[in-house]
Simulated assay, not measured.
Amino acid sequence: MRTPRPIPVAAPVALCGLAASLLLGGCTALARQSGDGGAQPAQVAAENARQATVTTEWGPLGPADRALIVKVREAGLWEIPVGREAARRAARPATQRNLAEIARQHERLDELARGIAAQLNVPLPDRPTAEQQSWMSEIGGKSGTEYDKTAVARLRVAHGQIYPQIAAVRASTRNTLVRQFAKQCETFVHTHMTLLEGTGFVTVDALPDPPAVTGAPEPGSPNQRRTPAPAATSVIRD
């Protein structure tokens, strides 16, 4: 059965904007008064707290920073059990081996997330999100190669979604602890994507649509071959 195509991921064009839209879910300000049908004062206060930047000894800690730590924790809560199960149930040895390795690496990532959360006083969840739980149920309901395809597809899409989010935080955070954490996450996620692609189940149907971009060059004519561009050092003027 073909896995439903995921919602396309936004292009990582403007990093700060990406952090706001992807990490924080594109939240809109809740500044309206309750009298005109807007948010209640308690909701406004709660949202203001979620958007707050606090001072730490390692630098400012913003909402995008906290969201990344939580997302890494949530990823481990569903990818560890899926990887462990795949080590037993997957039809192909490559799927068994690679997903088991992803689970092992997520144990280390979870250790890192718990450590930085304790230092920065960030509360962490103890259960996967409702969406992640639905993925686990979907994967668990398959058998044979359909099990492999579904597990790999769901994991690959999830890694493709968090990859630009990590890059956005890595590029914009003012907190030195979070910057180091994002750098470590970047290495892990890159490895996980490679492991998933190594199963042979990452096909066109398992990937989101390419992001929309502006300012892309027009495609070259198939009937006209271009000579290689000159070296940058030969065209730069001193």
Rank of each mutant, 00 (worst) to 15 (best):
Phe188Asp: 08
Arg226Val: 05
Arg179Lys: 14
Phe181Asn: 04
Ala153Leu: 09
Ile102Tyr: 01
Tyr147Ala: 00
Ala94Pro: 00
Val9Gly: 06
Gln96Val: 03
Leu177Ile: 05
Ala182Asn: 04
Glu111Tyr: 06
Trp78Asn: 09
Arg5His: 11
Ser134Gly: 02
Gly83Cys: 09
Asp238Thr: 14
Glu107Gln: 12
Ala153Pro: 03
Asp36Lys: 09
Tyr163Trp: 14
Thr176His: 15
Asp126Cys: 02
Gln132Asp: 01
Met193Tyr: 08
Thr56Asp: 02
Gln51Asp: 07
Glu101Leu: 11
Gln51Cys: 12
Val82Asn: 10
Thr3Ile: 13
Ala167Trp: 08
Gly35Thr: 12
Ser143Leu: 07
Val213Asp: 05
Val82Phe: 03
Asp110Ser: 11
Gly59Glu: 09
Ala168Tyr: 04
Ala45Arg: 06
Arg174Tyr: 07
Glu74Thr: 14
Pro81Tyr: 02
Leu124Ala: 01
Leu24Gly: 00
Gln184Glu: 15
Gly215Asp: 01
Val169His: 07
Ala20Cys: 07
Gln184Thr: 14
Leu207Asp: 06
Ser234Glu: 15
Asp110Trp: 10
Thr199His: 05
Ala49Lys: 02
Pro4Gly: 01
Gly141Ser: 11
Ala86His: 05
Leu15Ser: 02
Glu111Ile: 07
Thr203Gln: 08
Ala206Phe: 03
His106Pro: 01
Ala216Met: 03
Pro164Asp: 03
Gly220Ala: 11
Leu61Ala: 04
Arg92Leu: 15
Gly59Tyr: 07
Arg32Met: 12
Leu196His: 05
Gln133Gly: 08
Val70Ile: 13
Ile116Met: 04
Ala231Leu: 13
Ile162Met: 10
Ala151Asn: 09
Ser137Tyr: 07
Glu186Gly: 07
Val122Trp: 01
Thr176Asp: 15
Phe181Arg: 09
Glu138Val: 10
Arg89Cys: 08
Gln224Asp: 07
Ala46Leu: 13
Thr129Ile: 00
Arg156Lys: 14
Arg97Cys: 03
Glu111Ser: 12
Gly26Ser: 09
Tyr163Asp: 14
Pro63Arg: 02
